[in-house]
Design a binder for these strands. Structure first.
Lengths: 130, 130
DNA sequence: CAGTATCCTAATGGATACTG
DNA sequence: CAGTATCCATTAGGATACTG
């Protein structure tokens, strides 16, 4: 019998410490990857390597400057990407995944895998209905 | 040169179809797992097996009835969990991961793994500063 | 017990204009 | 080019009361 604190509140739960730590870890990862664009930014940088601000904005069709800046800053704070101001005129800025950022690859890969098969499943189901 | 439609807008992007489909798949998965509690619900059902509504609410410290119902419904719609009304008085309801729900295990596992090591890294960094 | 319904707040995120 | 600042709309989500 242990106390389970998932975020803010305390709850008396009869789950093991191991299990609770696992759930907390999952939650931590979720928080790091929160926001509408973060996963996609990481995936883009993983696929395409170094990218400038503008290039990212073009890849992430629909993202505005505010969100792009915000999400990039949060990723940088968490050590997942680097921001390099280039010595050009006017200045350009390059964003790149850090090694630590690359450590998210297994998660992204699994998400890509599942998402692909999921879409296949949906399409199959639609086909059967017709 | 292909057109990249990530959600609603069209963008002229010079990325390959494969790459674009991969990004779309990642996005799809992200959508399915959206919301504050969905990942945690899945992880709980994966760890503990069948759970009743009340039990889930206790495990997910802090969740309210509205959110729990909503997230469970969305998971059910997507075929990730089953909802079984038991023949008791008063009625009880059991939620359980489907086989399809279990197919998310690799993602959850990778998230647990990364989150655990991430917390370790943060703790190390704090320790070094002191 | 397992929810719905309602109300309300906080947070998210988009559009636009502007700046070094 | 790479952002900030501002305003605004939408949504997510929490608290509470209520129902079969």
């Amino acid at each position: 019998m242990y106390f389970c604190n998932m975020g803010t509140k305390l709850v008396d739960g009869s789950i093991s410490v191991d299990c609770w730590e696992r759930l907390r870890a999952i939650n931590d990862t979720k928080d790091i990857l929160s926001g509408k664009w973060k996963v996609m930014i990481i995936a883009c940088l993983a696929s395409f390597g170094k990218k400038r601000y503008m290039e990212l904005q073009r890849l992430l069709a629909g993202i505005g400057t505010k969100m792009l800046s915000k999400e990039l800053q949060e990723l940088e704070i968490n050590g997942l990407i680097t921001r390099t101001v280039m010595n050009t005129k006017p200045i350009t800025v390059e964003y790149e995944l850090t090694n630590y950022g690359h450590s998210l690859k297994p998660i992204i890969d699994e998400m890509a895998l599942w998402g692909k098969s999921h879409r296949g499943k949906i399409i199959d189901e639609i086909a059967k209905k017709e």
